[in-house]
């Protein structure tokens, strides 16, 4: 009886600590959102209060007076293209490595794997020179190709690991039915690999969407900038107008937060799985 009560008290304590932690995690974000609806005077005089009215003037100014929409579009375009190419190229290579025996297979797998260990940020100088020689500096395509290169190793690793677990009888029976290799891959094997693709996609999409370093170095033209990069421009411009600053941060955080809330299980699996392997 006493032990049970001790257990109950302990659980209450843990719940209290978790609640406190939740406040520490969420309250700053809540203040960010609420401040987006406040005037400067309100933010400075009553930082903890609710806004007097949910006036969308700050949000409208971010939307209308800055290149926010363009930055957002660039981020979506770059992230979408990069993740798309990572999944297509990565799945193709992984399929070859996982489903076919040929000389040099193990060596090629090792080559892709070694890409996991290489921090490409440190090769940014030769990348810069390389992109310049290819005419891809200050272009979204150049940025996309660098991201594809950084993302391929993990995608090949995840996809090959998954494709190896699929039983061989599946494609055998397809071949017996007279299907080509390509058809066996496309209509039998790939539909089964969808969960692994989601993991590989999220694992790459989040860091690419959030990346700042490569655009900072490679992109100089304002209308080509991505959202994190554009945010630095915008924060400098509106430096004294805190309501607009908070509105900009809120709008910038909104897309990925919404996707995260819907797909939290996949996000957590995708982002921690790469580390645990």
């Amino acid at each position: 009886m006493a032990a049970e009560r001790g257990e109950g008290a302990k659980h209450a304590l843990i719940q209290a600590l978790l609640a406190l932690n939740a406040v520490v995690m969420l309250y700053p974000l809540l203040v960010m959102v609420l401040s987006a609806f406040k005037t400067n005077a309100e933010i400075f005089a009553s930082p903890f209060a609710l806004p007097v009215s949910f006036d969308t003037a700050n949000l409208a100014r971010v939307w209308d007076e800055t290149n926010f929409v363009r930055y957002l579009g660039n981020s979506a375009l770059v992230t979408g293209s990069a993740v798309g190419l990572i999944l297509v190229f990565g799945t193709m290579a992984a399929y070859a490595l996982a489903r076919y025996e040929f000389r040099g297979n193990a060596l090629l797998f090792l080559f892709f794997l070694s890409g996991l260990m290489v921090p490409l940020k440190l090769a940014v100088i030769p990348l810069f020179i390389q992109l310049d020689a290819l005419g891809l500096i200050d272009s979204r395509l150049g940025l996309v190709m660098v991201y594809v290169a950084t993302g391929l190793p993990s995608a090949v690793f995840i996809m090959a690991g998954f494709l190896r677990t699929l039983p061989g009888e599946l494609e055998q029976s397809a071949r017996i039915d007279g299907a080509s290799e390509a058809r066996a891959m496309w209509s039998i094997m790939l539909p089964l690999a969808r969960p692994a693709m989601v993991i590989a996609g999220i694992q790459n999409a989040v860091p690419i969407w959030n990346d700042f370093f490569f655009p900072l170095v490679f992109i100089t033209t304002d209308r080509l900038k991505t959202l994190p990069q554009g945010l630095t421009v915008f924060m400098g411009e509106f430096n004294t107008d805190w309501g607009v600053l908070f509105a900009g941060l809120t709008l910038a955080a909104l897309p990925i937060t919404l996707v995260y809330v819907v797909l939290s299980r996949q996000f957590i699996a995708g982002m921690t799985q790469g580390a645990v392997k």
Partner: peptide, 28 residues
Amino acid sequence: KRALWIAFLLAPALLTMAVFVAWPMVSA
């Protein structure tokens, strides 16, 4: 035909890795 198919599957990823990872790392 099988060898061509495998090469087709591997080529885009290998080419990207060679141009944007392996070569820059060596150059670094």
